[in-house]
């Protein structure tokens, strides 16, 4: 147990460094952005009609004249105390905005994560065990087409087919337009999440299936598969292949959190789905520094958490690590 605690502690220390680096990079990129926060958020015409005092107050609000280093350090100091500041666009505490958005995004991402993982594993094993034959070609063809398709384009395509032509699914947003917040049913929420989740899953499957196929093909060439065949075993895929593909598949599954989070930015944008990804886009375009940094840090922590979970599960599942570390 001691080794696992030490391992986790080391990983967490690394996570702190990572989050520091990520937030600094996001800040520097934003700082280098040519967008003028006043012009973007107030508008050229309105700005022209304002008095110099009003402009000066707005400049102070958006932090235009504060030196970059001071702004970052001030944000960092507050963030370390748990205060991520107030979103300049939403005029709410950043953590509150993230909380709302995340609750919308989370089950979108979760369903896409589970669906793409399960489907990707099944297709990958199917293709890998029948390498070179038609199921393999079919799966590989699908994966290559999907991975070379931009996800926003796929989202538009699904939108056209299911919402415009067939008219069976809503065209965007997370709840019906004009509906009272309290009156929204779970079913309505689900219907609104179907298309974004589908887009994310369909694109996520390709990557997982291709990697699983590689691993499966690799396992199929191992000596123990040959021996199982020589012994006339029948359930080789279930008994040996799945067992040995499980570990790499697990890593893949947790590593895909990052891709799903990244994919959700574009997909939410297309479906006007008010999730974390969409908030990240508006924060970036609207020079909302506190919100952008908050989202960046939270997303990075999620991705890191996923990888950490995979590492820890590895130690639980793989007998070579579990027993090897325990010292048999």
């Amino acid at each position: 147990m001691g080794h696992r605690l030490r391992f986790t502690a080391r990983k967490l220390a690394r996570m702190v460094l990572l989050l520091l680096g990520v937030s600094l990079t996001a800040f520097l990129l934003m700082n280098a952005s040519p967008l003028d926060p006043l012009q973007t958020n107030v508008g050229q015409a309105a700005l022209g009609a304002m008095s110099p005092e009003q402009i000066a107050r707005l400049e102070e609000y958006w932090g235009v004249n504060t030196p970059a280093a001071e702004r970052y350090l001030r944000w960092l100091g507050d963030a370390l105390r748990g205060d991520f500041g107030i979103s300049l666009l939403y005029r709410q505490p950043v953590l509150e905005v993230i909380g709302q958005r995340l609750s919308n995004s989370l089950w979108l991402m979760a369903s896409a994560w589970v669906l793409s993982g399960a489907l990707g594993l099944a297709l990958g094993v199917l293709a890998g065990t029948r390498r070179g034959r038609w199921p393999d070609r079919l799966v590989r063809g699908y994966c290559l087409v999907i991975s070379s398709t931009p996800s926003f384009w796929l989202a538009l395509l699904l939108l056209m087919v299911f919402s415009v032509w067939l008219g069976i699914l809503p065209i965007g947003l997370a709840v019906p337009i004009g509906a009272e917040h309290a009156g929204v049913t779970l079913l309505q929420r689900l219907r609104h999440a179907i298309l974004p989740a589908l887009t994310l899953s369909v694109t996520g499957v390709a990557n997982i299936a291709l990697h699983t196929r590689e691993k499966t093909a690799d396992v199929m060439e191992r000596d123990y598969i040959l021996f199982a065949r020589a012994r006339g075993e029948t359930a080789i895929v279930r008994r040996h292949v799945l067992r040995n593909v499980a570990l790499p598949a697990l890593t893949l599954q947790f590593a895909s959190i990052g891709e799903i989070a990244g994919g959700s930015v574009l997909v939410e944008q297309v479906f006007s789905y008010p999730g974390l990804g969409q908030a990240a886009v508006s924060a970036g375009l609207g020079s909302d520094m506190p919100l952008l940094l908050g989202i960046t840090v939270v997303t990075a922590a999620m991705v890191f958490g996923g990888n950490l979970a995979a590492d820890l599960l590895y130690g639980v599942i793989d007998p070579r690590i579990r027993r090897g570390a325990a010292g048999t």
């Binding site: 000596d223 123990y224 040959l226 020589a230 012994r231 040996h240 499980a246 793989d318 070579r320």
Partner: peptide, 15 residues
């Protein structure tokens, strides 16, 4: 009709 293979690599490492 049985095969006795070379060594440990013919055993499933996860079983």
């Amino acid at each position: 009709l049985v095969l006795i293979p070379q060594g440990v690599t013919y055993l499933d490492p996860m079983m």
